[in-house]
Design a protein around this nucleic acid. Sequence first.
RNA 1: UACCCCGUGGUGUAAUGGUAACACUACUGAUUUUGGUUCAGUCAUUCAAGGUUCGAGUCCUUGCGGGGUAGCCA
Length: 562
Amino acid sequence: MTESSEQRESKNFVEQAIDEDLKSGRFSGVFTRFPPEPNGYLHIGHAKSICLNFGLARTHDGTCNLRFDDTNPTKEETEYVESIMEDIRWLGFEWDSLHFASDYFDQLYQWAEKLIEEGHAYVCDLNADETRQYRGTLTAPGRDSPYRDRSPEENLDLFRRMRDGEFEDGTRALRAKIDMASPNMNLRDPVMYRILRATHHRTGDKWCIYPTYDWTHGQSDSIEGITFSICTLEFENHRPLYDWYCEKLDIHHPRQIEFAKLKLSTLLMGKRYMIRLVKEGFVTGWDDPRMFTIRGYRRRGYTPESIRSFCADVGVAKFNSTIEIVRLENSIREHLNRIAPRRMAVLDPVKLTITNWPEGRVELNEAINNPGDADAGKREIPFSGQLFIERDDFREEAPRKFFRLKKDGAVRLRAGYIVDCHDVIKDDEGNVIEILCTYDPDSKSGSDTSGRKVKGTIHWVSAEHATEVEVRLYDRLFMVDDPSVVEEGQTFVDHLNPDSLQVVTGYVEPALAKAEVGERVQFERLGYYIVDEDSTAEKQVFNRIVPLRDTWGKIEAKGKKS
RNA sequence: UACCCCGUGGUGUAAUGGUAACACUACUGAUUUUGGUUCAGUCAUUCAAGGUUCGAGUCCUUGCGGGGUAGCCA
């Protein structure tokens, strides 16, 4: 059971609405769509919507389309279309059919003429500024446009001339004739078409008028036979307009349902934030392993499964909540714990010499690939008299609860022997540069006849056999819960974690030499790592995906505080 | 100071008028040749006040708190 949480019995409010409409016969199936505007890269927030839309279609034996909402040519690019498709597929979903709102421009135009003919739309000569004046405010009703009562004939003529390019950008707009006094701003004669001379990424220069989101979205859903049009909460106030257009046009009428978008602590998902991070070089690009984009998480080493199970885990509701980032981190740990083979790597090495080890002798020790998965098998690791261990795993004078190696103490070397430390060598500044131990020949892992029990087990690599690699230790970009909250005169940039990336040279066991780009492993006792695409034949590069839970770190931190 | 939406443990999500449940976190403890994993345990009278009802987290009223909305963006 990889994603048992996806099969929970309790239903969220969207599923309940679906059940209700299926049961009543309002709709005969679940036909959804994921409708991004191709104006940027997908981020973890989109993943929730993708999982919801595709997931609902999947569990109800329906369909889910991918539709690009490309009605604003000034912001959209083909590059984004490609990246969005790639990211959705990487997440593990495939659309039943691919559409572009721009494919419906002709139909939309026809429908606009229909509304004009029926007296439901008019050409307004107010410019953007004047339109705002007439719209009124949140508390005051608007006033009717002086052009509101033009005849259908005149409107039709004007609208066609708009289409034919007779007027300057922004000088006229087609508006729906609804109610300038409506408490819902969206119903105060919303704009359906604006004059906009811009080259569209698909229709080129065919059009100089473009439909707005509201005049496009519901009809696009309708054309595709969508039954449940799922979107985020900020469109709640648009629903009456969505419904109005479908009714006036007398076309198939999907049900719009709004849910709360994903908000994660320590993350800033807004486009303007992410653009600044990239443009000002705080990260290396949209796929920087610290970014909240889908490609960032992919490069970081997150699995599609972990992101899907995370989305299923956080649920769907209308409450504006903030999910703790540890839950995302937890979901990747949970998955990788099951599938990642264990390997040994030392990232901050100090030399450990076994003084009673026979000169030149090398043993091949057997090690288990995954203690939780017998099928993962075993591997061999060379063991010799010259090892590297983690600097942090040795203390000359250790606190009471320190279970690792200390002077005159013993520790087990993972998949090796118990060693006893009898001396250390220091440099002029008093730093330990070499640890001298003896090993207990009877204590070999797997065939221990020594009868000794030691509290700690540490990892190691054989100095002579280890490979030198580059390791990129990634940490959270922001350490505060909500980086958008700033002091006077500061911006979110001031919350950036200066240590979000640390590059170190590590030493890894020989079994890793053949690891290919994209392979994920657990460095025992450290965390999960993936071979990055920057790896070359000369040098591998590993990204830290997420560290292991660190109980000792907590104990130690607590001890320091008190 | 208009309209719409939302308030359930530290964080989320359930309970569809009938014993407040599940997950994550935190904290205990056990197991462990990864201070990982795993296992067990502990942590809430549902924003407030009224009302309806045999019975209210759920329905009604009011208040309080949070979010959204005044692009020819989506």
